[in-house]
Design a binder for these strands. Sequence first.
DNA 1: GCAATTTGTTCAGTGGTTGAATTAAATGGC
DNA 2: GCCATTTAATTCAACCACTGAACAAATTGC
Lengths: 419, 419
Amino acid sequence: MAVVWQCQAVNSTSSAGAVRQGSLRELNLAVVLRRIAAADRPPSRAEIAAGTGLTRATVSAVVDDLIAGRLVAEAEPAPRTGAGRPARGLVLAGDGPAGLGLEVNVDYLAACVVDLTGTVRHHLVRRADLRPVPPADALDRLATLAAEARAAAVLDGLTVAGAALAVPGLVGEGGLVRLAPNLGWRDVDVPALLAGHPLAAPVDGIPPLVVDNEANLAALGELHAGPPGSASFLHITGEIGIGAGIVLDGVLYRGARGWSGEIGHIPVQPQGRPCRCGGQGCLERYAGQEAILAAAGLAGADLPADTAATRLADLAGAGDPAALAALADAGTALGVAVSGVVNLLDLDTVVLGGGYAPLAPWLRPPVVAEISRRVLTAAWSPVTVRPAALGARSAAVGGAASVIRRIVERPVGWLARSG
Amino acid sequence: MAVVWQCQAVNSTSSAGAVRQGSLRELNLAVVLRRIAAADRPPSRAEIAAGTGLTRATVSAVVDDLIAGRLVAEAEPAPRTGAGRPARGLVLAGDGPAGLGLEVNVDYLAACVVDLTGTVRHHLVRRADLRPVPPADALDRLATLAAEARAAAVLDGLTVAGAALAVPGLVGEGGLVRLAPNLGWRDVDVPALLAGHPLAAPVDGIPPLVVDNEANLAALGELHAGPPGSASFLHITGEIGIGAGIVLDGVLYRGARGWSGEIGHIPVQPQGRPCRCGGQGCLERYAGQEAILAAAGLAGADLPADTAATRLADLAGAGDPAALAALADAGTALGVAVSGVVNLLDLDTVVLGGGYAPLAPWLRPPVVAEISRRVLTAAWSPVTVRPAALGARSAAVGGAASVIRRIVERPVGWLARSG
DNA sequence: GCAATTTGTTCAGTGGTTGAATTAAATGGC
DNA sequence: GCCATTTAATTCAACCACTGAACAAATTGC
């Protein structure tokens, strides 16, 4: 049984964007579905027609397809407007396809299910120190967790339409994890190791698995959960290394080879401390988790990665001077690096995620200070700095959200599967 | 007579991307035209059909429209292949629409005409110190130069389909130049000042004028003229300020508010020299033209901007130790900043443009050195650092190229005009 | 000169949008 | 309580652009 695995962004436009006859409907399905997803209250067919420029006849036909495919449902309590036949509001279906988000990290495994409406329906976490565990075993446990999540989704009447796995490392073509230093993984072929598992043999239709960098998916999670409007932002994940997901105009930017987001090695002190990357004075050596812990006098305390952050937050909350000073310095270094990025990319929002999320109360002020000093346009167009709305759940939720986002962007893929 | 001025990127997808019936042809016109433009040798209708997945019948019909609209021509000497009826190769028309690129800079005005094939057909430059000239007068002279360029284009049988003006400053909505410090411009409403000029009343159809930042258009010029394949790059314009145009996956990134590319204020020595921006240790203070000149012992020599660069190049070429040291230091600072950007965005190419182009022989080595030290992925996927292919002509050519690029991306706009 | 081959065109067929007419379902005035 | 008014959604003939197959055109090779 051949299993099709897809990794990285799917090149959805077949044959270089040529528009064949059926593409017309394909494209309009996406247009209408996007409109329903983006609306703040359930729109009627007529409103969609007026907003898109399509005729009401076309919108009706398209909506029929979407309803038949369990992507859209009619909201029964019609919003009373005034005279005339009442409109029937359209909403995304809460009982159609769902996305499965998975995460392997240093000290936990996570799986979550997000439905079309964006609601997180299930979120399972297994704590475990995975550093000494061989990759095959870790993925084995992950597959079990994924099966649980899927079962819970099925009980809700949902169909898992795809899965995305977040890994804290560099991911290459074909789901190959080139290097995940904190997990101790090197050239781990995730699809091959998972091939026999229930994750690979779902009940109905084969869900392709996407493997992606944790920082990328966390950024997508924030794009999904964060307040609307900030469509260009930098999501910074502070762990042992420092990663960044870059969202520009609402789309995740992955870089020429898929390796964007290495913010940890931006020089903040060109003649400063030597770094394992070979350079000097990299951000990671000043604002990485190890650097902050060392500065706070917690060096050598081999804490799990996520408890390290909460431990620091506790100390800082209690007024510990060393911890406060360490966080202030780290925040300043972060602010220097971020200022450069904001100047260059003209971003309006910076999100502190991962291990930085619980530390945001202490990191934010120095970051904001550096930005207001160094960012030219900050004066007449302020830059928002906020903690991640989802905190540590960002990556798993983002993975699940990326699955449903793909369906919303190109509903034909789902409709073709499920008649 | 109302004149329609468009500025910044045109939101081409009407009504939020809804696909109406006619859009089918509209989209396929673009698909086929892009294919002809991107091919390395004139493709036949059959090859296009095979490559796009469209039928030969459809391609024929589409090509007929393109030929009727003077966008495509048949290359008469058919490339002999083997058996069968010989294919008729298709090329972009050299006598259809052309783009007009304009530039206002500190010590010159420029206008150039680029045809659909990308050939620079005319390039006019007027040297003049424009700093003491009021904006209205400068634009007046520019309009005269533009009229000359247009006349030359018309003599070649070309039709100017649009114009883009490069300004060394921040450009806001509606072509309003917020601030061009080196020109001494502030809140200059370019469309209003040009409204009565021949540029605004063309022979046939109204060419919308786009006003854009010089660094952005210069990056587009390099995208247009540079070697193919490098679709994600940073184009650095070294003048008194340091600007950057960011091209990601072949499209210019403008930022959330259109103010991206401020690379000059990336901190390279966080506790270093104070900068006019209010920060400290900005790149501009180490690699800006004034900083380099000062370090080379040429401070206060009030040279025109472009001759300053050649003057420095002459000195360095002659082995002047102060100039060599100044360039080495500037290159190192540039390398530090660029390394951070390349790490973050995973770019494969860095282009030294503007005033840096003639200095590239001396700037390149230290930049490359810093990149190879600091960029993580440089080891197994090298970063190209090269001088701008067009040098100082980048911005004007890029402006003209942006006009023809818009036509290639959406030929219907042109076809609707010119029957 | 004729079969083979490939290109490009013609034409009936079809999918999907269009626009107008029609039906459906509410409000509001008398 | 009834009917005009209003807005929503559907139906249906028309039409546009692509499809696929058949056909004509132009060259090579035997």
